[in-house]
Design a protein around this nucleic acid. Sequence first.
DNA 1: CATGGGATTGACT
DNA 2: GTCAATCCCATGC
Length: 204
Amino acid sequence: MSAPAPLPRAFYARPVLDVARDLVGCVLAHGETSGVIAETEAYHDSEPACHAYVGLTPRTRTLFGPPGHAYVYRSYGIHALVNAVSEAEGIGAAVLIRALEPLDGLPAMRARRGLERVEDLCSGPGKLTQALAIELNGNDGDLVDGPIRILPRPPERPAPELIAGPRIGITKAAELPWRFCARGSRSVSKPWPPGLLPPRSGRR
DNA sequence: CATGGGATTGACT
DNA sequence: GTCAATCCCATGC
């Protein structure tokens, strides 16, 4: 049996909020490792939290490029964060992948992360790039036909119920509810939004 | 050309 | 709860 085809470019050439919602439940894959997307955030050049807010610069070139490419950048000098460039070419918009539920390549993920617990491997935007070995040189790579791929939601998995909340770790436009999490997922990054149903602390 | 601020994480008080 | 690590690049002189 063959692997499913990646999401088509038309998937990304839509409003970034739609792309952010629809990516939850899809599969991010790199090499032998992959995971189900549990959490995303949308960014758009019309609001100041987006890197593309400053316009077209060497840093933001990928964001303004064609949809369906990966925008990978270094955060806090340490971590690589991966986004899916969305909307039409010329619009600076992207969806940050914030958390995955590990699917394939668990041994490689554990080795790269130096951790054993499944729920700690990809439960943050910097963690998942380390687990999947996504580096800065993946910037501008084609998600439709490149080493970093995004595949449709596995048919045997039910469509996730989404919880929306404010984006994490930003100081500007922090009021926009542009973060989307899969309800009930143990892999979502902290802080958990209200209504997420934490794994065991939900009971009193 | 110097400076400052992150779309974070993990270790420590 | 607090805080340092560490690199890219936008900004301002």
